[in-house]
């Protein structure tokens, strides 16, 4: 079905991402979102899907930006890589930032390329002092180039390096402290990685106390039986599970109400189902705000 959009609009919604629930903008929902303008606090878009020069994706995003704050979430910058920074990638992101005027811009605590070959994945870093220095240097240069503070998201991971000397939360806290970046705390990733590596979720959250948490992500995952117990896979293909909702409440108590994204990428449900998840997050956010006010 063709997407019919109004002419580009010069008036825009204010850009700040509110401490309410947002949903990911997915191509499968372009038509419905453009037609129905659902009641939701904000949208998050995967930056690289808008790296083209024009066409439907950018039209949809620009048209939504007239009515909603938008956050840009990157997946391909390969911030932790030892490859040179990809200037073309950064130039395209900068152009997109200028075009969309996002409220937040985020990337991952990960790497994705070696020798110029990209894995199309968010790969785990060894949490060493060397990697920390490298990551902080890159992040600082990127923020300078973009003229934009970034939020850094904790990844889901399926292996740990024996030479890591810092816990992930300490690495994340230190990298953002030294670069002035913020933290996008993905509670599903936190849960998946903690289960896979037998880390303690409470210790992880305590380790970020006082840190610059600016956004939270919630998503669904899958559980796969392996030889020695289950492995959790960050599949983004279902509703947020009970344990992650519980972590969410714990995080809201620790960090206060924060913009919260419902992420869903595979086996996408109808838009209405995403909005139900968003309303659940909103109820938790309101409860936390009332508790703070009272």
């Amino acid at each position: 079905m063709a997407v019919v959009l109004p002419a580009p609009c010069l008036q825009r919604a204010q850009g700040t991402i509110p401490a309410s629930a947002g949903i990911g903008l997915r191509a499968e929902h372009y038509h419905e979102v453009a037609e129905t303008r659902p009641t939701v606090g904000w949208f998050e878009a995967h930056s690289e899907n808008y790296f083209g020069g024009g066409g439907t994706p950018l039209r949809v995003l620009e048209s939504l930006r007239a009515d909603y704050p938008v956050s840009l979430h990157g997946v391909g910058m390969s911030l932790g890589s030892v490859d040179p920074l990809d200037e073309r990638h950064l130039t395209r992101l900068k152009a997109l930032i200028m075009r969309i005027e996002p409220g937040l811009v985020s990337e991952h605590l990960s790497w994705g390329s070696y020798g110029g070959c990209f894995h199309n994945d968010l790969l785990p870093l060894p949490y060493t002092e060397e990697a920390l220095d490298h990551f902080v240097g890159r992040l600082t240069r990127v923020q300078e180039f973009l003229g934009q503070r970034l939020l850094i998201e904790n990844p889901s991971s399926y292996l740990e390096f024996a030479h890591s000397s810092l816990p992930e939360w300490e690495f994340l806290a230190e990298a953002t402290r030294r670069s002035g970046a913020g933290i996008l705390l993905d509670l599903n990733n936190l849960y998946v990685s903690c289960r896979n590596h037998r880390w303690d979720t409470h210790e992880y959250l305590r380790g970020l106390a006082g840190g610059p948490i600016e956004e939270l992500h919630l998503a669904g995952h899958s559980q796969r039986p392996m030889e020695h117990g289950d492995l959790l896979i960050d599949t983004h293909d279902g509703p947020v599970c009970r344990e992650v909702w519980a972590l969410y409440v714990e995080a809201l108590t620790a960090f206060g109400p924060k913009p919260t994204l419902i992420e869903w990428d595979a086996r996408l449900p109808p838009l209405a189902e995403l909005l139900v998840e968003a309303r659940t997050a909103d109820r938790h956010l309101e409860a936390r705000s009332h508790a703070l006010a009272g």
């Binding site: 690289e48 899907n49 997946v75 399926y158 796969r224 896979i233 599949t235 992420e263 595979a266």
Partner: peptide
């Protein structure tokens, strides 16, 4: 095309 899920 670009997203941050892991395939099931």
């Amino acid at each position: 095309k670009n997203d941050c899920k892991t395939l099931s």
